[in-house]
Amino acid sequence: MVFISGPAGCGGTRAQQALTAQALSQIKPPDPNKDLQQQLLVQASQASLAQYKDYQVGREDLLTITVLGQDNLSREVRVNGQGEISLPLVGSVKVAGLTTRQIEQRLQELYGSQYLVNPQINVAVKEYQHQRVAVTGAVEKPGSYEIIGPRTLLEVLAMAGGFSSKPGSQAGDTLNLIRHQNAPDLAKSTKTATIQPFSPKTETIVIDLRRLVSGQAPELNLPVKNGDVVHVPFAGTAYVLGGVRRPGQVSVKENLTVSQAVAMAGGVDPILGTYNITIMRFDDQGKPMSIAVNLKDIVARADPDLPVKDNDVVVVNESGLKRSLYIIRTLLPLPSGSYSMTSF
């Protein structure tokens, strides 16, 4: 058994206890799910087609080709299954995988080499190909979605209703973008995403979820392609028991600490609880271990505010004396002020 603890004595003046209680009452539990949801909606609402100037044309896209001063050459053409379009004079032109700017340059070269002097050509995407992506995990509306045109991770998450608001189903700290290996390797252009093998035919791009929705790392807002799976893993779960107001489970994310976990459980019960806490967890070898800490020492920064891990059980120890006095007072009510219950 491993113990990490500071002084846990029951001494101290009333003034010191009141000061500590005041400090503890100011600890507010974090609500990372609410923050993520708000940031997601803000970032998704700011999405614009201007972000897609580098969109690569694909099969079934409908293009508008405008040749200045040559109405007989201007037309709408759909990219065929081979990624080509057919135009007067120049015949079949391979366009799949090119941006509209690159297609313009290609057509200017083809027409300018034999047919036109200094041709001015504009290419625009009128209809984008239909694509299907799946959104799974800790989102409000998991499922399969049809998207038209280029879409980013933030937009697809917004289409799925954002992050789950169900108790015990909150999003974790990462997002997994799972795609076929033959899709463009967009993650190579960013140093902040890591690629991990998922299966022989797919790859998984692991992205920091909070950095993504904060807008501080726009390079993480990757374009979503046909056949992609956007998976939001669920947050881990820990349990806060003993002398707290609302014992139960809490979501483990965003470096959740012991003091925050206790605050999320309503704080220390003023009648039954003490400041002595025992963290029960399994080590890397699967063996049970215990860590003893004191909440007053954490607030006073005498002890570190340890991070809570998935499947931890945080027990706020109850005072046997306080419980006995509580029972006695419940059964045999005494005049107010006949005794006081001090904190341990």
Rank of each mutant, 00 (worst) to 15 (best):
S199K: 11
V133F: 02
L177W: 06
G149V: 10
K126L: 08
G149D: 00
S165H: 11
E146R: 14
P167Q: 11
A134Q: 12
A193Q: 11
K141W: 02
A187V: 13
Y128C: 00
V133H: 00
I207S: 06
L186W: 10
E203K: 15
P142H: 04
T192N: 13
Q120G: 00
I121M: 02
V139T: 03
P142M: 04
G162K: 04
S169Y: 08
S144M: 09
K225H: 12
A187Y: 13
R132G: 02
Y128G: 15
V213M: 09
N182I: 13
V139P: 07
P223N: 08
L220G: 07
L212Y: 05
L116D: 03
A235V: 12
V135A: 00
K191S: 12
L209M: 12
P200N: 10
F163C: 01
P200I: 04
N221G: 02
K166C: 02
G168F: 08
D228Q: 04
Y115M: 09
I178E: 04
L116G: 05
L222M: 15
Q196L: 12
G149K: 07
S189N: 14
V232D: 03
G236M: 07
D173L: 03
P150C: 00
T194M: 05
G227E: 00
A158K: 12
F234Y: 15
N176P: 01
L116S: 07
G162W: 05
N176I: 01
G137C: 06
Q181D: 06
V206N: 05
L209S: 05
E219D: 15
F163G: 00
S214C: 09
Y128M: 06
T202H: 15
I148E: 09
P200K: 07
V229C: 01
H231T: 10
G215S: 09
T136Q: 11
Q131K: 15
L116N: 07
F234R: 14
A124C: 02
V224C: 05
L220C: 00
V232G: 01
D208K: 07
T174H: 07
L157C: 04
E146H: 09
F198N: 13
A217K: 11
L116F: 09
L212V: 06
K225D: 08
G172W: 05
A158G: 03
D185P: 07
V232L: 02
N221C: 05
E127D: 10
S144H: 09
Q131N: 09
L220V: 07
Q170R: 10
S189L: 12
T152C: 00
E155D: 07
R179Y: 07
L175W: 08
E146C: 01
E155V: 13
V229L: 12
S199F: 08
N221S: 05
P200A: 10
D173E: 13
I195V: 15
R132Y: 08
Q131G: 12
G227N: 05
S199N: 14
L209V: 03
G149H: 04
P197V: 10
R132Q: 14
V117R: 14
V123S: 02
G161K: 02
P119D: 03
N118V: 12
R210I: 04
D173Q: 08
A183S: 15
I207P: 11
S164W: 03
Y115V: 13
V125Q: 00
T194I: 14
S164Y: 06
E219T: 15
